[in-house]
């Protein structure tokens, strides 16, 4: 019973009773410390899933439980990162990373008095993602990949139990993406954080996740749940094994079928 996230038979409809049904009968569980990936055809309600888990949307029917509590308002134990890094251009990278601490109830009253400790933590995170010494730069002085690294730091600064990633690597070139996969892999291994990754990239999902959920076309529900069998720590080489490719192929087939049904 160590589910960190548990979603039970959830319906979410936008725009009143006659609005579009985004997800329907959605059920999924993610254990503490697990790395879960969610894949599916476009418009299947993956972003809705993100908002349900973080408490930005409250479902009309069904229950979302995060860390043992039913979600009725935004849960502050999560960190979020989107495809768009959304760094604030008037703050330096370091100030951007410290932003969540100015918001989260637990930290905001301690921030001023313990600034040094928090800055140290931020710089430590910057070093982990390979941005050592870039804290004083403004976001627009960084490349897209570097901004996305900083975005990950911002999502992690308040030590969330759960990290929600919505296609964070979608806009990056292939090599930068692989580099950041390794960054995320190492962060997950080092910090024991639970991660839910929403993605279109099947290789990304298989490489990173312990568990992959395949969603149906709108209204979204879970069609199938896969365990990823590869040993950790995984090397990028794993992607050139035939078992890896078989799994990607299988997922691809399932999503193609889900698209046709829709």
């Amino acid at each position: 019973m160590s589910h960190l996230v548990s979603i039970d038979n959830v319906d979410m409809r936008y725009g009143g009773a006659a609005g579009t049904l985004a997800v329907s009968g959605l059920t999924m569980r993610v254990d503490k410390g697990e790395f879960a990936a969610v894949v599916g055809p476009s418009g299947c309600g993956k972003s809705t899933l993100m908002k349900l888990v973080t408490g930005l949307h409250i479902p009309q029917t069904g229950v979302v439980i995060v860390a043992g509590e039913q979600v009725t308002k935004p849960v502050s134990i999560v960190g979020m990162a989107f495809q768009n890094p959304t760094m604030l251009p008037w703050r330096t990278t370091l100030e951007n990373i410290l932003l969540p601490l100015e918001i989260v109830e637990k930290h905001r009253h301690r921030l001023r008095a313990n600034k040094k400790e928090y800055v140290e933590k931020a710089e430590n995170l910057l070093e982990i993602v390979g941005l050592k010494g870039f804290g004083s730069k403004f976001p627009w002085q960084l490349s897209g990949g570097m901004q996305q690294r900083a975005n990950l730091c911002r999502a992690l600064i308040h030590e969330p139990d759960l990290l929600m990633l919505d296609e964070p690597f979608g806009a990056l070139d292939a090599f930068t993406r692989e580099e950041l996969w390794c960054v995320i892999r190492d962060l997950h291994a080092a910090q024991g954080v639970t991660i839910i990754l929403v993605t279109h990239d099947l290789r990304e999902a298989v490489f990173l996740a312990d568990k992959i959920f395949v969603m149906s076309a709108r209204p979204g529900r879970i069609l199938k749940e896969h365990r990823v069998p590869f040993e950790r720590p995984r090397d990028l080489e794993v992607m050139y094994q035939s078992t890896f490719n078989d799994m990607v192929h299988e997922l691809h087939g399932e999503i193609a079928k889900a698209r046709v049904v829709a």
């Binding site: 935004p74 849960v75 502050s76 999560v78 768009n84 932003l99 989260v104 999502a155």
Partner: peptide, 14 residues
């Protein structure tokens, strides 16, 4: 304001 920025902050309890 970009909706993503708002979401990131609101999810933190802003």
């Amino acid at each position: 304001i970009e909706p993503e920025t708002e979401d990131v902050l609101r999810a933190l309890g802003a």
